[in-house]
Design a protein around this nucleic acid. Structure first.
Length: 110
DNA sequence: CGAGTGACCGCAA
DNA sequence: ATTGCGGCCACTC
């Protein structure tokens, strides 16, 4: 409600998209993390919905589940997402899971 | 305008 | 160890 504070007035979707846009090159974040950063830790599922219907220009390929596994509905398939991450220096195994996931995980507090 | 669905997460049998 | 279920918000049909 704080008129001077823009973040509070933004909706959940807006905040999620903002956080996704802030994910740096070569790092990844989880749906739950983005949901928590947006104020609703239990709304991780909504983040997936936003990824599907939201702004496609955002780096959604840097968003994965808590296990470091790639998304199932990524445009082009998980193979494409794995290739994109690999290009950024984030290797994935044959199971479409990020290798050394914790090491590449983005830390907003950092 | 109402209801269903979704690229998830955490906990309980 | 695996399976099943509830919860949250936004968007589509």
């Amino acid at each position: 409600m704080t008129r001077g504070n823009v973040e509070v007035s933004l909706n959940f979707r807006q905040q999620v998209e903002m956080w996704v846009a802030r994910i740096p090159y070569g790092q990844v974040a989880t749906y739950g993390e983005l949901a928590a950063l947006s104020g609703q830790a239990a709304a991780a599922r909504i983040v997936g919905g936003i990824a599907h219907y939201g702004d496609p220009t955002l780096p959604w390929h840097r968003v994965v589940n808590r296990f470091g596994g790639l998304a199932s509905g990524f445009p082009g398939g998980r193979e494409v997402q794995a290739t994109l991450l690999n290009t950024e220096g984030v290797p994935c195994d044959e199971n479409h899971t990020i290798i050394n996931f914790e090491a590449h995980r983005w830390r907003p507090l950092l």
